[in-house]
Amino acid sequence: MPDSLKAALARFRRSHEFWLLAVILLLCAGLGVANAQFLTMQNLFDLLTSYAFVGILALGLLVVLIAGGIDISFTATASVAQYVALAFANAYGANWFTVFAIAMGTGLALGAINAQFIQKLRIPSIIVSVATLNIFYGLLIFVTGGKYIYSLPDWFATGIFWFEFDWGKTSSYGVNLQILVLGVSFLITWLLLNRTNIGRQVYAMGGNPDAAQRLGFHTFRLNMLVYCYMGVMAGAASLVQAQLAQSVAPTVLVGKELDVVAAVVLGGASLSGGVGTVLGTFLGLTLLAVLQNGLILLGVSSYWSQLFVGLVILISVSVTAWSQRERRARRVRA
């Protein structure tokens, strides 16, 4: 069907993702020319590894935003999940399966609490998640005294290193824990949103909640699922982070909420629900990662990198908004 393919291409050309991709490619080309290091495998793997935490959380948040809600308690959820899982592993011993089960189960439980507050008490999700961020985080530090855990089980500290292969003479690469979990998260979220009935219902509910109710959707269950999914993602992300940092640090995750929000909304997800794609989130994340990484490689002092990130966010959202307004104006005229 070349016609429908053409139509699909035309739709893509008009989409937010297309422009984002164009910007990223330009940026990559520029950085590649300016610094030979940028386009190396080494750098690519480093980038994926260091952005895995934000990326996994972004996928959870994407699902929540599509459903028409918002959650910013995920950093607190991650802190709790990380502490519970690794404290358990230290005390009773565990393996990969059990730590992930515990962390994701903890996240699921906290997500369910959010969903209950939102649904049963009819409180807007923004209020609930601002509140539970403080509750989860406050209680965690109160109970643990904010102490770091530096001694992690050996198998956890070592991590994993799959599909090892050599590149050139000096270095070898493989899939580490961060990249594995990030990849699996992308795959599962994409399958959920695009290949299951539930995923399509999440989109539908975000697009028109009243209609969803009228058509007999189980909106309670859908919302439950969405916030629990966010919690599970927070649980997974927390272990990825702990493994990378080689420690459990209950106080360092809270405060990173807006990095995640930035990646998702730069990727085109709308805060009013129903809009957003896994590809867009990937590109939003990539833009932020490439930018920060590129600045370092260009020798820009790390003190100044945030300035450029701010500029890029501001310019890209302004240009997007401006071009949308132009298009709308033209359509009115036509």
Binding site: R200, Q201, Y203, A204, G207, N208, A211
Partner: peptide, 15 residues
């Protein structure tokens, strides 16, 4: 009661 963010086909068949 349509879903503006979904395709025509999905809107028709979602039930």
């Amino acid at each position: 009661s349509l879903f503006p963010n979904l395709s025509v086909a999905e809107n028709i068949a979602i039930g």
